[in-house]
């Protein structure tokens, strides 16, 4: 499985913050195995955002957790390499990894559940500093700075608990907690999915500012293709644990090559009432994760599937648009409807 040759997807620019080589995650549950993430390659540079998109069960959340070595439960095996500035995380000792944790941070979908319910806001923001053992003076300074970066000040949150803040405010507190340890990379797992639209824009802008100011690498996990398009420099589309298409945002959105990417794009609810939607009557069946189909996993839903797709699994290879696509019959025309809508 790890012999899959990776054509030219390696770092083109020097010095990626994080590089993932052949990452696979296999869960074993009551004797049955299933591969949640299958031989995934990508890299993130400083100041760059990688968007990971896919439906539920595509493995996007599992990738995020595997990167930070947060999958500890029994029956989980992780293969492949995750390199932070060239150092393989899986080769690090526990103590070394603990030190590195300050460099790699995470933001969750539901900020409130990512806070210990018995803590005050200040202590939540200081959590990483306490764990990493910062001296008191620096701790206070960093809390102040982190809160300021998300538009709060210490006096405002003093003595208050998370439930006294709204969802958007809590997500800002979660961002402050991640920033307090001054990371190089933040994995954002659906950070705006549970927020109201009017609040979502604020969090997206905030993450963009922070990324630009601090030269952070961001991995932005989301099911919302419009949000991912807005925030990402590079986009990887996941289907059943595999990357089926990866490239720059422009390549993926202007000339999507994989039929799955197109399916996703067509399904996005667009705020454009000028085009009447003609409902489709067909229905696609998503295959079971435990028993993936032979060959290309998407073929059961694919309008272009041929015999070849059942026989041989397509590997990532350059598509006409410049991105990499894992498809025997990639598309080579502009994305449907998008250009027309922009005009």
């Amino acid at each position: 499985m790890s012999q899959n040759k990776m054509p030219a997807a390696g770092p083109l620019k020097a010095d990626p913050v994080l590089e993932v080589r052949g990452l696979s995650v296999t869960f074993t549950r009551s004797g049955k195995e299933f591969r949640a993430v299958d031989n995934v390659f990508f890299s993130v540079e400083a100041g760059e955002t990688l968007g990971l998109v896919g439906e539920s069960g595509s493995g996007k959340t599992t990738i995020g957790r595997a990167l930070l070595r947060l999958l500890t439960s029994a029956g989980t095996s992780i293969d492949g390499q995750v390199l932070y500035r060239g150092r393989d995380l899986s080769a690090l000792s526990r103590a070394e990894m603990r030190k590195l944790r300050g460099r790699l941070q995470m933001i969750f979908q539901d900020p409130v559940s990512s806070f210990n319910p018995r803590r005050k806001v200040e202590d939540i923001v200081a959590e990483g500093l306490d764990i990493q053992g910062f001296p008191k003076a620096e701790r206070a300074e960093r809390i102040e700075a982190a809160l300021a970066a998300v538009g709060f000040n210490r006096a405002l949150v003093a003595g208050r608990r998370p439930h006294q803040f709204s969802g958007g405010q809590c997500q800002r507190i979660a961002i402050a907690r991640a920033l307090a340890v001054e990371p190089d990379l933040i994995v954002c797992d659906e950070p705006v999915a549970s927020l109201d639209v009017s609040v979502q824009a604020h969090i997206i802008n905030l993450l963009q500012d922070i990324r630009a100011d601090r030269k952070l690498g961001l991995i932005f996990i989301s099911h919302d293709l419009a949000v991912v398009k807005n925030v990402s420099d590079k986009v990887a589309v996941l289907y059943m644990g595999k990357i089926v298409e990866v490239g720059t945002g422009a390549q993926i959105y202007d000339r999507p090559a994989h039929p799955y990417t197109r399916t996703l794009l067509e399904a996005v609810p667009v705020v454009d009432a000028s085009r009447k939607l003609v409902p489709e009557r067909e229905r696609s069946l998503k295959p079971s994760r435990m028993r993936p189909p032979s060959g290309c996993a998407f073929r059961t839903r694919c309008p272009r599937a041929s015999d070849k797709c059942a026989e041989r699994e397509p590997l990532l290879s350059p598509a006409p648009g410049g991105q990499l696509v894992a498809c025997h019959h990639p598309h080579d025309e502009p994305a449907p409807g998008l250009k027309a809508a922009a005009a």
Partner: peptide, 9 residues
Amino acid sequence: YILAARAMG
């Protein structure tokens, strides 16, 4: 929150 604490080391 346990995951978050783990991520903090």
